[in-house]
Design a protein around this nucleic acid. Structure first.
Lengths: 344, 344
DNA sequence: ATGAAAGCGCTAACAC
DNA sequence: GTGTTAGCGCTTTCAT
């Protein structure tokens, strides 16, 4: 029986060269598709040997020599170990993953602790050529973390937030949260509400703050009283209770604004359980709808998120940056789309 | 302005050694925590230089030398680019990701095309020390793919399916789908149904087949007629239509068995829209419930999936395999838990 | 207690 | 057209 603990033996350039009766330089050229001025017979002999020995280039050797890892690192700052449950993150990562694969790169995925980013595998060694990052936390917390990440001197794409100051070789990609919120707010105004309640997750995300800003910009001047309730998304039942209590304590709002769909579903749930009709008594709006994830009924008035596209775009920008030497764009904002629904 | 295309310059062992006035061998020892028989002052001088120069070991150099990548590759065979939308996959990957990070490894994530697994980044080079794989497709398709993956001679953990024959250095980790389905079937029998409809996704997954088997094993002997309907999960509206048509065409079943929660939600939706009461007229059951993902109302009778744990477990087994030289276990089955709900 | 040196697999500049 | 060779950064053995 073969010793399983020994690293399996894989053919090297040298072995292929020997088998084909050529030098390793020639094999290297063949493997890398540089056939200029090479006999067809040499090429064929080498290709045969490559196939014969099932040769696959050793990435470590290649990377060491070329100082290129052909890997993108994705860092997600989220306090929850279940970070991937968030459909925005999930769609974003899917977009990045597919784009990166298509272009021959690998994707390293890691959630990181905002307190000690250096402890991350991706950050510790020089594992990736470039970084894609999604940050949560307050503005100063994010700024601080970005500054530390910038010390790695990797090109970076930062998702879902505006261009940070003081860091170079960075590019941002985000959806138009402010614009989407403004649009939704205008739609809400058609109900002529006098008070609105905005439901926010406890964890701070720049995109959520942007949405809040958009809602305020439109609703406040129209004389709508906008109150806020933060609840822990990580605990749906807890969120239900928190909202129930809040509603019991004061006058019923005319509309409840979920800053994401999950919170909007909670709102519909609580309202119906309390005997209020949606949308007759209270309107409900959501945000960030995704294919296959959005609840079926009542169809939520919400905003479609282009998270998957953001991922593709960010990955593309990053790889172009690596290969061309500079970012083509510094800031990308992708429009969002209002989705009508009977909840409003 | 610095030339951004040039690979950023990071301190090397040699530079740290010069700065500390020692040899690179000594620096290497310090960096790797091998202090035996080393002067405190030497160690301190080196540590100071490491800090000063912000030294981080180059992974390529290290990997080349040690033939260890300290990376786990996760391969997911799923025809959909949105593969990460599936909450099972998402929870599984989260578990793997966190476990792997904790143990100082990196996670390479990639969806692969079952037709040409060799085209995957992870597979092409020797990127990872070991592979975690989740396969879809029919049994022969999966077997064929596994055989090709086995040629890479990587230790592998295969999730959600039974031990494949003919491959060595493999270990399986799965939830008890058959058992869960049997339990749910017994719960369903309490309704004394005469006909049941089983809703299946179009894409073949071994876990789904296992559930189907569990349901059949219990329902058929009890005289329940079990029919099947496959519908495309990738298109919720399409699934709604398909089920609506199916129900209109024949007698109403007493219970609809969703082989996952998404399909169960579709069933509830269609039934209610057709004016049938759930659970009075028709009972509905789901499968694979996850925290924060499961729909709120009506509370689904379903089965809780330990996907996150499966991920942690698989990652742990893989890393122990890498470090100890052999798998501690070959086959792990994690029990599932029935969740009561008013849908049944 | 510390250092010198070999060599992991690969690419590319240059020699023939 | 093809081969020789230096060297990327690191770990480890063996001298001293």
């Amino acid at each position: 029986m073969r010793d399983l603990s020994a690293p399996r033996k894989v053919a090297t350039l040298r072995e292929v060269a020997e088998a084909a009766g050529v030098s390793i330089a020639t094999v290297s050229k063949v493997v890398n598709g540089r056939f200029e001025g090479m006999t067809a017979s040499t090429r064929e002999r080498v290709e045969a040997a490559v196939r014969e020995l099932a040769y696959r280039p050793n990435r470590a050797g290649r990377s060491l020599r070329s100082a290129r890892q052909s890997r993108i690192g994705m860092l997600i700052v989220d306090p929850s170990p279940r970070f991937l449950v968030d459909p925005f993150i999930t769609n974003l990562v899917a977009g990045i993953s597919n784009e990166v694969s298509m272009r021959g790169y690998g994707l390293l995925l890691s959630r990181i602790d905002p307190e000690e980013p250096e402890s991350s595998y991706i950050v510790k060694g020089q594992e990736a050529d470039a970084l894609a990052v999604l940050l949560s936390g307050t503005a100063p917390e994010r700024e601080h973390l970005l500054a530390r990440l910038a010390e790695l001197r990797h090109p970076m794409v930062v998702f879902q937030q505006a261009m940070p100051g003081g860091v170079e070789d960075v590019c941002t990609v985000r959806q138009d949260d402010v614009g989407g919120a403004r649009q939704m707010a205008r739609r809400i105004l058609e109900r002529r509400p006098s008070r609105a309640l905005c439901l926010l997750p406890r964890q701070r995300w720049p995109a959520i703050e942007a949405r809040l800003q958009g809602f305020e910009e439109v609703l406040a001047p129209a004389g709508v009283t906008l109150s806020q309730l933060r609840c822990d998304e990580g605990d749906m039942e807890g969120a239900l209770d928190a909202l129930r209590e809040h509603l019991a304590a004061g006058p019923l709002p005319d509309v409840i604004i979920g800053t994401n769909d999950r919170l909007a579903v909670v709102a519909v749930e609580v309202l119906q359980a309390m005997g209020h009709k949606v949308p007759e008594d209270v309107g409900v709006s959501g945000f960030n709808a995704f294919p296959f994830t959005t609840p079926l009924r009542p169809r939520l008035a919400t905003v479609r998120s282009p998270a998957y596209r953001l991922g593709e775009l960010g990955a593309r920008l990053l790889i172009e940056r690596i290969e061309q030497g500079a970012f083509a764009t510094r800031e990308t904002v992708v429009p969002v789309e209002l989705v009508e629904g009977e909840s409003l």
